[in-house]
Simulated assay, not measured.
Amino acid sequence: MSDVLPDESRIAAEIERLKAEFTKTRELYREVCALLFFRFGITPTANRLYQLVKRGSMSTPTQVLGEFWTELREKSRVRIDHPDLPADLQAAAGELVATLWTRSTASAQAALDALRTETEGEKVAARDAVASLRAELGRTETALEQRTSALLAAQVRIRDLEQAQAAGEATRQALETEITRQQDEIGARDRALVQARGDFSDELEKLRGATELTEERLRATEKLTLLEIDRERTSSARIQQELEAATRRVEQGEIRHRQEIQALQAQLGDARHHAGVVEGNLEALRSSNVIYATELDALKLQLANTAASQSAAQKRSRHSVETRKRGRVTPKVPVQKRWA
């Protein structure tokens, strides 16, 4: 037999061929023994056979190997007992086969014991590894369940925060729209108040002008009347009739002037009544302006509370939502100065 080890790939290829040809385990082991011993010059052992074939239990290659050596020894004895061989060659051949058989059996038994010890150690290590893997698997499954529960809770919380944020955004937009409308109404009322104030001032100036003109006329008339009375008194000695006529004219003038004064006083009363009505409307506008200012303050407070709630919700939400909300600034509503 050659002392050079054969190529492992060739041995593996031949064994694969034998596996396809021999389906029975014992026959396959017997053919592998013959392949190693006769073709590749390798003394087969139970451990080696099991590593190459990997079928059955460890007792199968041991039994097959024993049968192989028994069959080989019997065949060798037949050849040894051949009558053509000399006696010394027969003895030498018998001794050689016996020695080979003893060494092979001892080597096979030692390999079998080593393989059993190694198999037991691997079995114990495998059991420990399986128990460790099972414990690790249990811990992993528990952690996975906890993380899954936490993830679901976080998703629910995120959805709630998104809904609360959407509701807060809708409320803020509604409040901003309402504030804009209130500001427009207050501006319109302020403009109407300024217009009414201007109209009242113009009307008051007109009434004052008319009153002054009437008073001037009255004073002029009184002066003329006094002059007439003085002239009539100086000329009473001359003409009594002219005095009486003048007196009648003066009386008629006084009546006319009194009527004019009464008419002017009535006009002045109407003007004062109109001024009172305008003042009442102005006071009503002031009261309405105070009410609107109060409502505006309440809306500002509600908007501030909504913005605070939204800010608190944003702090607990995702970072992208918090960044977007910090970029927004709640517009400050200018307070219209009420006219006093």
Rank of each mutant, 00 (worst) to 15 (best):
L112N: 12
G168D: 14
Q173L: 09
T225H: 05
Q240I: 12
Q336C: 04
S107C: 07
G269N: 13
T140I: 07
S287L: 03
E16S: 10
A46C: 04
S149D: 10
T221M: 09
Q262G: 05
A308E: 15
T177F: 02
L193D: 01
S201V: 12
A293S: 14
A275S: 09
S107Q: 07
E283D: 09
D3V: 15
E21I: 05
E169F: 02
D128Q: 10
K223Y: 05
T45R: 10
V277Q: 08
Q109N: 11
R139Q: 14
G187K: 03
W101A: 08
A210C: 02
V130Y: 07
A304Q: 15
R231L: 13
W101C: 07
V194F: 03
R248V: 08
R219F: 01
H274P: 06
E205K: 14
T23E: 02
E216A: 05
L49P: 14
R249I: 04
A12G: 02
Q173P: 05
V329N: 00
E145G: 07
R73K: 11
N289F: 00
R147N: 14
T60Q: 06
A135V: 02
A275M: 11
A87L: 09
R172N: 11
Q241F: 01
Y29C: 08
L36Q: 10
L224P: 00
L72K: 07
T117F: 05
E232G: 13
K19Q: 15
E8F: 01
A92Y: 03
S287R: 01
R134C: 00
